[in-house]
Design a protein around this nucleic acid. Structure first.
Length: 424
DNA sequence: CTATAACTCTCAA
DNA sequence: CTAACGTTGAGAGTTATAG
């Protein structure tokens, strides 16, 4: 099987550039929620030494010095651009797995009569022209190799030019190439594994590829054994379902400023439940358990630390925001302690099951109102007018705890009122 | 004891 | 001016618990 892995170049920065061409050729960084750290960097920003996941305040001085543009993340914009990109890519193969907001796998078996490299260049050209995003393409016989080929395309290794096809290279050429690539670039090899296999002298892709799979399976995991097989061209991982039903739904955020009052935590928890419950309804699931957690700031070890989670089993599985809120607020009250500066809270909907007609186990003694219709109306209104238009009173209206996003660009593609006015 | 639930660790974007 | 460090989901493996 031949896979193509198509991945946008620093997606978030590229999205911003589509609507603000002044950002071209300049160092640009997009920040995480709360304007905390760098999650996307233009090539120019990378060249200045700004690392991925580096806290902004640590390089803010660089920003001043070199005129780096730092932007808050605008997920509404990126999600919309992603949808456009995926639609265009879907035209190139009937087999598409949307793997993340900025990349997808395409099954290429039906196109082997074509020149796949030329075909990939056409993919790049069309996505650039129709959506405005630059992408690179990696081609290979397994998903793991396709990811690696994409890495080479991006780094312009193996004479890439935005497309890298391992199928066109000999085993000898591949071995030489792999010997120059750090093992941490391999899909599935993260920080911890890099350390551990490094201690056994495995530091390059080539040394992992040629390592003994049985030994590594024994010492590490079956996952690593599969990775080694995939690096050697034996396919272990197939294309997956595009929109699998989630087994759990989490909503959590750090606060814009420390929170000490229970009332504020209640608003935050209620808001997160609002988000999570809407997601559950959207996929037709009901939750059997709700989990709530709160924590202080781990990056401030000098201030008193506290962290706690509480799980509540529900008498009857539900996706009703009001019932779930009630359960979550009860859990919150159990774990809340006065005297701490809370930094983050979150909720999780667990034990999700299919909420389809009549399959939910009912609670014989339940006195809860059936809010199914209310929820349906709420979802419709919020779909039209934006999330939070209709919400539970428990969410409050001040939202003093809400995250910081001080440098956000307009939602160019999803909000008329944020379109910049062009003077004639 | 086994089967499974619950939890921990790791990884990815 | 100050202080300031993401979110969501999955899978594997281990430990706790029920029966």
């Amino acid at each position: 099987m031949t896979f193509a892995l198509v991945d946008a170049n620093n997606m978030y920065v590229s999205c911003e550039r589509v609507f603000n061409p002044k950002l071209e050729n300049r160092p640009v960084v997009v920040l995480s929620n709360n304007d905390g750290m760098a999650v996307a960097r233009s090539a120019e920003a990378r060249a200045l030494g700004i690392k991925m996941a580096e806290p902004w305040f640590k390089w803010k001085h660089l920003a001043k010095q070199h005129g780096i543009v730092a932007l808050s993340s605008n997920y509404a914009l990126y999600a919309d651009m992603s949808n456009r990109m995926m639609k265009v890519l879907a035209q190139f193969s009937p087999d598409q797995e949307v793997y993340s907001i900025d990349e997808c796998f395409l099954g290429m078996d039906g196109f082997k009569h074509l020149d796949l490299v030329a075909y990939s260049h056409e993919i790049r050209r069309r996505v650039k022209q129709w959506v405005g995003l630059p992408v690179c393409v990696g081609l290979a016989e397994t998903k793991t190799l396709a990811k690696l080929a994409n890495h080479c395309a991006k780094k312009n290794l193996a004479g890439a030019g935005g497309v890298c096809d391992f199928g066109r290279m000999t085993q000898d050429e591949l071995s030489k190439l792999f010997a120059t690539i750090d093992v941490s670039e391999v899909w599935g090899v993260g920080r911890a594994l890099t350390q551990k296999v490094g201690a056994r002298g495995i530091t390059t892709v080539e040394s992992l590829r040629t390592a003994d799979p049985k030994t590594l399976r024994r010492e590490f995991s079956v996952t690593l054994e599969r990775t080694i097989a995939e690096l050697n061209g034996t396919q272990c991982v197939d294309l997956e379902d595009a929109n699998p039903t989630r087994q759990q739904i989490i909503s959590s955020r750090s606060f814009g400023a420390p929170v000490t009052e229970l009332e504020q935590l209640r608003e935050a928890v209620a808001s997160y439940i609002g988000i999570a419950a809407a997601k559950a309804r959207a996929q037709g699931s009901v939750a059997g358990m709700v989990q709530v957690y709160i924590r202080t700031n781990v990056f401030k070890p000098e201030s008193p630390q506290y962290q706690q989670t509480q799980t509540v089993p529900l008498p009857e599985s539900t996706s009703d925001t009001l019932q779930l809120t009630k359960a979550a607020l009860w859990a919150l009250k159990r774990i809340y302690k006065l005297g701490y500066a809370y930094h983050k809270a979150g909720v999780a909907l667990l034990n999700l099951t299919d909420g389809g007609d009549g399959t939910v186990q009912k609670d014989m003694f339940s006195t809860a109102k059936d809010n199914t219709k209310l929820m349906a109306v709420m979802d419709r209104i919020n779909a039209t007018y934006g999330r939070g238009t209709l919400r539970s009173a428990a969410e409050g209206s001040s939202k003093e705890w809400a995250m910081k996003r001080e440098r956000m660009s307009p939602c160019y593609t999803t909000r008329w009122d944020e379109l910049p006015v062009v003077k004639a």
